[in-house]
Amino acid sequence: MNNYMIYLNSKRCIGCHGCEVHCKTNKGLPVGPILCEISHDPLKSVKGIPKTEFNFRSCYHCDDPFCVPICPTEAMIKREDGIVYIDQDKCIGCMACAGACPWSIPQLNPDTNKAVKCDYCMDRVDNGKRPACVTKCTTHALKFVTLNEVGI
């Protein structure tokens, strides 16, 4: 059972792509991998005003992840609290996980030649902090939700 999720309040999101860079610089990632993605639907006129919704996608931290069993070195791990992460010491950069993931979420870090993906910033979360993207979102549009807290 997943304990966490990241929720985007599209009404507050301004599509500034800040979260993408907040994530990258927190993890020290070079040009290339971007672990979360802001996208928007095509504009549609609502009562005379062109409007859209924004979407935020990182990793779904699936209940039954395809990426975990495919990894030949058991580098891809699902924690008890639901977080799916890559043990960088074990990863050999074969990218089998990316092939298995329906959304090709894991990406190659060209600096290390290993796979990287969203891990809900577990180092921060384990220290009582919120993920980088959530902490620094330009308009406080992102929320880190701890599911058992809200009683789901």
């Binding site: 500034c16 792509h17 800040g18 993408e20 860079v21 907040h22 990258k24 610089t25 902490t135 620094k136 979102c137 330009t138 308009t139 406080h140």
Partner: peptide
Amino acid sequence: EGNQHLLGGALCAKGSA
């Protein structure tokens, strides 16, 4: 990060870069 006392952490993409 944006100063927690004034911005509650908020920063833009440029600020993070």
